[in-house]
Amino acid sequence: MTDDQLNRLGRWKELPFFSNSWPLIRSRLRVEKRDILPPAPLIFRALEMVQPQSVRVVILGQDPYPTPGHAHGLAFSAAEHVKPLPRSLSNIFKEMEQDIGACPPHADLGFWAEQGVLLLNTVLTVPAGEAKGHDKLGWQRLTAEVLDHLGQTPRAYLLWGANAHKVAADVDPDFNLTIKTAHPSPLSARRGFFGSRPFSRVNAWLQARGERAINWTNAPEAP
């Protein structure tokens, strides 16, 4: 990681992970013979887009999409041109349509990040074609430190899947809004993700606290 890349992390660069754990992970990535997703400049994009003080909602996933051309550094998101949608994202949009009556017009969820939604995977890289292939590299240390750093202020947490549940085990459900469900993948979405209404529940919680709701669909907001 160059000084410029580190500076793009802003306050996140102060986490112990970047001095204690990242050098070893980086060395292991350098000798990886398989293609690594997302591309190196996008690995920390989720943190670059939302600084700690701006985080209002945390969405935790598993690891990046293993299909080349899909992963771009934001959990569950993909580049705008990606069609058909990744299957997990397709299920997220199905649930959103049932919950709030609409969904975004494309796969890029960057506009969520611009509103303070941290789209973070528990593992930030994956070998092309092998889901969970970097599960043992040590990325979970970063996720744990991020959650600990955010723990002083109430936030909404959408914990999608067993990996997210495990890493976020210490998130206080009495202090925060925590919505724990199955992962939205086709293998598990019907085990509790569908019907969980996460988007309306998060907005109701935010508005009850006097905060602005998240525009989940990218539709123009009413004046």
Rank of each mutant, 00 (worst) to 15 (best):
K83N: 08
N7H: 12
L124Y: 01
D170R: 08
S88V: 08
L29T: 07
I214M: 02
G129T: 13
N20D: 08
F17I: 08
G61V: 05
V123R: 02
T2Y: 12
Q152H: 14
K94I: 06
R8L: 09
H165N: 04
E32A: 12
G10D: 03
F44Y: 04
P127G: 06
L187P: 01
L24N: 12
P39C: 06
D172P: 09
P223H: 11
A107Q: 01
D4W: 13
Q51I: 09
R28H: 14
E32L: 12
P173F: 05
G192M: 09
P52R: 07
P84G: 08
Q98M: 14
N20H: 12
D135M: 03
V82H: 06
L9E: 14
A102R: 08
V55Q: 01
N203I: 00
Y65P: 00
F76E: 00
A168V: 11
I214R: 00
A189P: 00
F76Y: 14
M1E: 03
K94R: 09
N91T: 04
S77A: 05
V55L: 03
I59S: 01
A156M: 04
D3K: 11
P154C: 14
E211N: 05
S90V: 10
T153G: 05
L24G: 11
H183I: 06
L15H: 05
V55D: 02
A219S: 13
P104T: 02
R209K: 11
E14V: 12
R87P: 04
Q140M: 14
K83P: 02
R197L: 03
V57H: 00
A164T: 05
V171F: 07
L37V: 08
Y157D: 01
A213I: 03
A208M: 07
D170M: 14
H72S: 08
H149T: 11
N218H: 07
H81D: 13
T122D: 07
M49H: 13
W160L: 10
K136V: 15
S77L: 02
I59E: 00
W22F: 15
R56P: 02
I214L: 02
P223S: 11
N20C: 07
A113H: 00
K136L: 12
W216N: 01
Q5H: 12
L119E: 00
E48Q: 13
I36G: 06
F93T: 07
R34Y: 04
D4R: 11
P68H: 14
F76V: 01
